[in-house]
Nucleic acid binder design. Structure first.
Lengths: 189, 189
DNA sequence: CGACGACGTTAGCAGATGCTAACTACACCG
DNA sequence: CGGTGTAGTTAGCATCTGCTAACGTCGTCG
């Protein structure tokens, strides 16, 4: 059924608006106008404004996790697994710039249940990174590895704030910096 | 005059609330309640809710800039100047965790004029970094250096998302990763 | 053809929110 | 003692916003 096309159109428009003005800074009228319908027509496609955001955030974190697992598992050894994770995250961040912004800015606008679901997925994703980091640097403690993973996310997710570089150059720059940062972690023990 | 104490108390409480729920997720009643007064009493100290946020953001970026300039200028050469910037930014991020969150999440909630003022200060701060990066790596283009600076900000500003490490350890970890990331930039040309 | 389901419209309600108005309590000072 | 400025109170207005209700249109299909 191609009936999902309108839903997807709405999701994309909403993502763009949320990224620019924040979840609470966008009304359902704004979202409707962005796809050519007006206001409450959204409720033919989504149960609530919250549900729209929830679907967005859950799908982001689920995609990050499943594809991240797939790629790192396909690697021959730990270092190339970590490199695959870096490549995947960079690729995702550059392809879905608005979603990256939303995920770590509007997460708290979610209802308890959905927020927990997203947090769970994010935690598992982080654990994928942590496991590989500690496999490569066994002397690094788990909290330090987790903090390092978050730091690399921050580095890669900085895209929305710069993005004045050609995409290919940006890809190389972020990957290089991320790997260098990860490689330095062992020295901090 | 110690009359500024109430203002400062309000600013601190508001920063904390804004960081947790976002500017638009906090009402003036919430802020009032947080300092033991109720609602509209805030207007004895600030012209508007916007003005409160504006003062916060301008003061953050002004502090970052002026102290950043001071410390990097005091360094003997470019590499130690850049290291001084890293240290300063790490120190600030760890000391003012809520402010870091607010600055790059609620900037768009500001009125045109104030937002421009903050952006100007931020741009000048970034330029301080860019100049030093290019002095060390002359073969790196200006856009790449700027993107690299933003990436390092992202790395350091990841603090709010982790922070499970003892402060001293976090300081070392972030500084090491930031310097390693910066050192790798030349390899991307 | 007529029923129906999908998708859209406008009107309007209920609650939250920024801000003003009017008033009060009190410290300070000539 | 009376006047003044500071810092607080509550009541209430105007606006915005999420959401529901009631209704219209149209393609599909038994």
């Amino acid at each position: 059924m191609a009936g999902g096309s309108r839903r997807d159109e709405i999701l994309a428009a909403a993502a763009d608006l949320f990224a620019r003005h924040g979840y609470r800074g966008v009304s359902i009228y704004d979202i409707g106008a962005a796809v050519g319908i007006s206001g409450p027509a959204l409720y033919r496609h989504f149960r609530s404004k919250d549900a729209l955001l929830a679907e967005m955030l859950v799908s982001i974190s689920a995609t990050l996790l499943s594809e991240g697992r797939r790629r790192s598992a396909a690697a021959a050894d730990a270092p190339s697994g970590l490199a695959a994770l870096v490549d995947w995250h960079v690729e995702f961040a550059l392809d879905h710039l608005p979603l990256i912004t939303i995920q770590f800015r509007d997460l708290d606008s979610l209802a308890e249940a959905d927020r927990e679901e997203v947090r769970r997925l994010q935690r598992e994703y982080v654990e994928t990174w942590v496991r590989l980091i500690r496999e490569i640097h066994p002397e690094v403690g788990e909290p330090a590895a987790r903090a390092a993973a978050h730091a690399v996310f921050g580095l890669i997710n900085s895209t929305p704030h710069s993005a004045r570089l050609a995409r290919a150059d940006m890809e190389v720059l972020l990957r290089t910096m991320a790997l260098a940062a990860l490689g330095s972690v062992a020295a901090t023990v």
